[in-house]
Amino acid sequence: MNSQTTSAARSSAAPLQPELTKRKLLVLAWLDRLAPVLAALAVIGVWELICRVFALPNYLLPSPSAIVTSAFALDPGIWLTHTWATLRVSLGGYALAIIIAIPLAVLLANSRLMSRTLYPMLVVIQSTPIVGVAPIIVVLMGAGEMPRIFITFLITFFPIVVSTVTGLMSTPEELKELSRSLGASKAREIRNIQLPFAVPYIFSALRISITLAIIGAVVAEFVAAEKGLGFFIAFSTSFLRIPQAFAALIVLVTLSLLLFQVIALVQRWLFPWSLPKESR
């Protein structure tokens, strides 16, 4: 998208100004790089303007300035406590999902019986609206972090299972035959061939799932929590403090984006070959 705009800009600018200097090109390159930031700033500006021009009250749509003000009105320690609580639950549920989903996917991909018996069950779990069963999970698992981690796990693990299975199944049949013709064990085949082949699939699922993990943690915190950004949003709206709730939403979105980037970096760092050639 970005590169397209630039090339369009350049190709239209170049014939008109053959003497286009290096300096101008540099400016254009910077504009290209800053484009997403500028776009975001523009949206915020328009948002602020609308709120002011129409004198929208905070309970309808808080202005960006009202959100920022309410965010800074609170002790940073409070933000840290809630963000940390949500992060812990998200990462806990996410880790649990990875630990369970990947071995499960290996089982499903390598056993027709297992995939025939377990897949329908997994689909049932996935089709169950977690928000609906969350209160039951909380009653069953009691107070503390476990029910929240479990709810996050439930929301997170299915995409990882499905994507990993697809990845494992994408292993070329020839390589499985090669492995068999070498007399190598199934375990070696899974470890040396199937799992590496699934890496790109696993990572695309991991990127989706990390954002789902945040959503899962927030859903769980809506249902039962004494801390966390989900709790904080419920708490703020219960006092009709809408700007404060928006500020928490922004923290959540930022957290989501950051974690998404972290997963992408981990992939680039550990498995550069699993990325398309041009994005390495």
Binding site: P57, Y59, L60, A234, T237, L240, I242
Partner: peptide, 9 residues
């Protein structure tokens, strides 16, 4: 959480 805004609006 929507009750107050609805009443105010």
């Amino acid at each position: 959480g929507a009750l107050g805004p609805m009443l105010a609006a």
